[in-house]
Amino acid sequence: MISLELLVASAIAVLTAAGVYLVLRRRTFPVVLGLAFLSYAINVFLFAMGRLVIDRPPLFDKAAEGYTDPLPQALVLTAIVIAFGMTAFVVVLALRSYLETGADRVDGTQDAEGDQ
C-alpha cells in the first residue's frame, strides 16, 4: 500500500528535479519553465509542512472532530501569487531581451551555429 506521504514527497521530488534541470539550461524558455516547476514544488512542499490531513476543515466548523493547519494554506496562496506574477514578468523580460539583443541565451552570448 502506497501512503499519501510517499506520493506527495515523490511528487515534490520529481517537480524539483525537473525544475533544477530546466533552470540550468542555456536558453531562457526552459529556464522559465524550470522556475515554474520549482515554484510548483515549493507550493506542494509548503502545503505539506502543515501535515497531511484528510477530511478536516481549516477553519471553524461545529461538526468537525479536528482541524488541519490553515497557515500553510495562506502561505501557499501568497507564494502562488508572487510566483505567478514573477513568471509573467520574466517571460516578458526574456522576450524583450531576445528582441533587443537577438540572443535567447541566459548568459547573454550570441547563438552559435547548430546550437540547441
Binding site: M86, A94, S97, T101, G108
Partner: peptide, 15 residues
C-alpha cells in the same frame, strides 16, 4: 536587459 534577465532569474531561484 542581458544583465537584467540573469539578475531576475538568480533572485527567483533564491526566493
Amino acid at each position: 536587459l542581458k544583465a537584467g534577465v540573469r539578475y531576475v532569474i538568480i533572485n527567483l531561484v533564491g526566493s
